[in-house]
């Protein structure tokens, strides 16, 4: 086997299929998107080169910035909610009764497709027959809001669904990371008289700091390019109240047939995501990895 792997030709050959796929399906389209972003194009007819006009328009487009604001808000909440997931995982890892079952329950949303989750939450939020409003009315609330139709609530209503959707994913990641901490360290701390909170805060969390950083990047990037639930549940409406960058891009490219402009939005989103990822890594970078 070593002999095979030392042959450069063979290495190239083995890498080739994946390389071809990733170049034609990922990097090629990214470059093309960048190229289309410089064009005025309706998706069918001839293109005309307009230089950076699309980007200039983009910077002045209040609708775009509004949707970007929503995306950043989602990123903020997703990052914040990571703390909650971490606490849940710490508790689950604490050998409480039924933690096995609970872990599986948390994971279930991950197994559902986004469209199914969207349909589920549409039913929950239904203004007249929905579970949530029936509950609120039973509790004596007179006029519960029409969650997905009210511009003041719609964004947060969808955020709840999105956070719910990804809870299981992050809990599993944290849970697995926590499982990797050697039992001996915790044992030693306990003998030294540390209480469970101290153990969690002083030993477990620092040890999985690397994983936490990764999840922060994942949460932020995932939020910035988030699309599915929003598209199915509201389509960005009503009146753009739940529009995010990705849904705005879709609307422009496939709704209004402004493929050039939509591509510019997509490329800009890529740039934003890259910058934010870089920033996050910078900000969360601490000197040395903690080791005991």
């Amino acid at each position: 086997m070593n002999k095979v792997m030392s042959n450069k030709l063979v290495i190239a050959l083995y890498v080739l299929p994946a390389l071809i796929l990733i170049v034609t399906l990922i990097y090629g389209p990214i470059l093309l998107t960048g190229y289309y972003g410089l064009m005025e194009w309706n998706g069918i007819g001839p293109m005309s080169f307009v230089g950076l006009d699309n980007y200039i328009e983009l910077v002045q487009d209040s609708k775009f910035w509004e949707s970007a604001g929503h995306s950043f808000l989602l990123a903020f909440f997703s990052t914040l909610s990571l703390a909650g997931y971490l606490i849940i995982s710490l508790i689950l890892g604490g050998k409480i009764k039924g933690s096995n079952l609970l872990r599986k329950i948390y994971l279930i949303p991950m197994l559902l497709s986004s469209v199914a989750i969207a349909q589920l939450w549409i039913k929950i939020y239904d203004p007249n027959n929905g579970m949530l409003n029936s509950l609120l009315m039973a509790l004596g609330v007179d006029n519960p809001p029409a969650w997905l139709a009210d511009p003041n609530y719609v964004l947060y209503a969808i955020f709840v669904a999105i956070l719910w959707q990804y809870a299981g994913f992050y809990i599993i990641i944290y849970y697995a990371a926590l499982k990797g901490i050697p039992e001996t360290l915790i044992e030693a701390a306990r003998i030294d008289g540390a209480n469970p909170v101290q153990i969690a805060y002083k030993i477990k969390v620092p040890l999985i700091a690397g994983v936490i950083k990764v999840t922060i990047v994942l949460a932020i990037v995932g939020s910035l390019k988030y699309f599915d639930l929003i598209y199915v549940m509201t389509g960005g409406g009503p009146n753009g109240a739940s529009e995010v960058i990705a849904s705005y891009m879709y609307q422009e490219a496939f709704g209004s047939y402004n493929f050039g402009y939509g591509s510019a939005v997509a490329f800009f989103l890529l740039l934003i995501t890259l910058v934010i990822t870089w920033l996050t890594r910078k900000l969360t970078a601490s000197g040395d990895e903690v080791q005991y």
Binding site: D126, P127, A146, W147, L148, A149
Partner: peptide, 12 residues
Amino acid sequence: FINGFNGLGNDE
């Protein structure tokens, strides 16, 4: 129009 019409799809 039905309560919450701007959030309801046609099928709903």
